[in-house]
Design a binder for these strands. Sequence first.
RNA 1: GGUCCCAUAGUCCAACGGCUAAGACGUCUCGUUUACACCGAGCAGAUCCAGGUUCGACUCCUGGUGGGACCACCA
Length: 793
Amino acid sequence: MSKNMTDFKPIERKWKEFWEKENIYKFEPNSNKKIFSVDIPPPTISGRLHMGHAFGDAQQDFFVRFKRMRGFNVLVPFGTDDNGLPTLRLIEKEKKIDSRKMKRSDFINICLKTIKEEFIPQFLEDEKKLGISNDWDIFYSTIDERSRKISQWSFIDLYKKGRAYRLNSPALWCTECQTTIAQVELEDKEEESTFNDIIFKAEDGSDLIIATTRPEFLPATVALFFNPKDKRYKHLIGKKAKVPLFNYEVPILTDKSCDPEKGTGLMMVCTFGDQEDVEKYLTHKLPLKELITKDGKLSSIAGKYKGMNIKDARKAIIADLKKEKLLVNQKKITHVVNTHERCGREIEFLPHNQWFIKYLDLKDGLIKWGKEIKWHPSYMIHRYINWVRGLKWDWCISRQIPFGIPFPVWYCKKCGDVILADEKDLPVNPLEDKPPVKTCPKCNSKEFVPETDIMNTWATSALTPTIIKDLLKGTKAYEKIKNKPMTIRRNGHDIITFWDFNTIVKSRLHYGYNPWEELFINGWILDGKGKKMSKSKGNDIPPQKILEQWGADVLRYLSAAAKLGEDLSFPEKELTAGKKFITKLTNATKFVLANLKDYDGKKPKKLERLDELFLNQLNKSIKTCTQNFESYEYSKAKFEAENFFWKNFCDNYLEIIKKRIYNEKGDKKKSAQYTLYHSLLTIIKLMAPITPFITEEIYQNYFRKFEKDKSIHISPWPEEIKIREVDEEEFNLMIDIISRVRQEKTKAKKPMNAEIVLVLNKKDQEKLKDILEDLKNVVNAKEIKQGSFKVEF
RNA sequence: GGUCCCAUAGUCCAACGGCUAAGACGUCUCGUUUACACCGAGCAGAUCCAGGUUCGACUCCUGGUGGGACCACCA
């Protein structure tokens, strides 16, 4: 035992290196053990490990270590998500290069190299310092060759199954990033705006007042709408109206979705000012007027406003309406607009050729399949179901950025036919590679154009179970897991609706079964004020700082305080509590080991009654802890183990057997030593998943001599210790009497080791007859007299 | 607007419908050295509101209030 175990730094460094050198956490691909496979979120590596990672990773490591000790061959591949915009921007900035000015394949190579050489090492170093027990050699990147191949195969498979289709459709478009974006990339933003009451002219010359926040869309107006139940406008059915300033006619139509209370009850529909317009366009088959250009300017249909950006055009049009006396009222409002989460720009709807994955027809199935997965905590499935029910469009997977995984597609220049890559050629890059055919099978044309779009990053990350299985090709493990769901995925509740959902979609469409059997949803770590920690908000606490000041065990201990699935407000006090636990464990161990010096590791012929009573308590704790770890309730498991250690073991048992172990010889002493040995070993094993460093230190310094396992973390999970049947009440009575004596001593202002004469009634004495000696020892009674309870000094 | 989660001492947090509502931090009192002053023992301190079900409610039901998350809407 090292002299000063509270100095955690050398200890944590030592065992981190030991685990690595001895390959303690190696997945054994050719072993016969049962596999426990874990799918975890590949982080986008844009710097060091942050608190969100640390918190989620620690929670996952609790059950990973538990399962390993339960005898499973644990598989936790680590990946990085490197094919999206964040990586593009990071690498462009780091390397001072412009992805648009270089070949896609060259940029990908620079990405892979930079991430592998510069980001992964420091990121993994932090993970290892935290004690995350993954086999880091089983690794993928979502932009590596394997992922590109699988992602493109996925597209081809879905296309062949009739699930991928191309459509010129209104797409969510960001005029800042100049790309289409997905529903999930939207973010609500409160904005100041103005409701403008504008005069349209009806056929009979009367004024029709329309309230709109977007008057710049006047030139793209394609119809007016009102609610069919709205009596005020009944006479307008089938009539036309004239658009102010632009003087062309549009039909007046009705739709149930119009709210008579909103504005004037009359709405103008343009292609496309907002979501409402998109829906009216699709349901009423309205004409298309493309007003907004890709870079956020007005097109030629805007007449003299052509080329203006949206905000300027709005001002100009309002000014002209005022001049023409067509603007009757303006009202300031605050409303919520959809913006692109990455840049904050308001989104627009632009028609674009997009690839979609058809899944709207699968809603019922998706709900059913979601229910077949065991969710931890169970209520998290509601988020999934709610999301599925609310889906309005198929999944648009096209993106117009230069970096990412390209569609394995060319088009015939003449007839537009889709030419897919040959699966054996994957991965391909249509911009650089040739299509697999020389002539178009339909029209015999010899000219092809490559698809320039790439697939959205979720289209690839939704394939992590497939990628993970592929990593093991050629091993026994692969044969075992290739045709069935993985055991579990763990992620935060914020990405249920995209990562989990999309992964389920792909797994069902490709294989017809679920991607995993279980889902573990972890909460977030919040700052002290209930807000999610994030670098951009400036309220994050870097885990490196905590690791430096408090150590990994303390940080992990803190992460174990959160209830399953729940957010945890960063509890500073838990740092102190964790530290105290480690100190206490160190000190208790020091005492135990000092008294085990002459212990031979063998069981005495007969266990003392009290020791059996105590072991019975230990057995109960083992049971509770095990159940809680099984159900991923590590906060409860920690509570149980710690409570047992502190209350039962330190405060009571150690005090009780002190004198016996100091003064007795033979079996009486050996019985205590046997009990000490097994209870301490059990305690460190129960806590090993949560605080792996200190428990390894204790194990290696003493128990390793007797136990054969190389590390506590690959030693078997504790089993209940066999003892004779005991009466728990006997133990409880003893504890109760000890507590009452302590109260009396405190009341009399005497020290705890003050010598007393204890008076006990006959019934209690009778009940405690086998453990009276131990009772005398612990309360320091020179004699026990008969009578009603009393403490004499 | 829809769905879900949460509400317990000054603070954090626990309790199959059933003993005196547990524990930690903090406060207060006392003690201290053959594991531990980064200590020990002890005292004080709590179920958001209004109904209901029940022999019995922190727990179940209804309604409210407050906090949070996700989704939808936002002419």
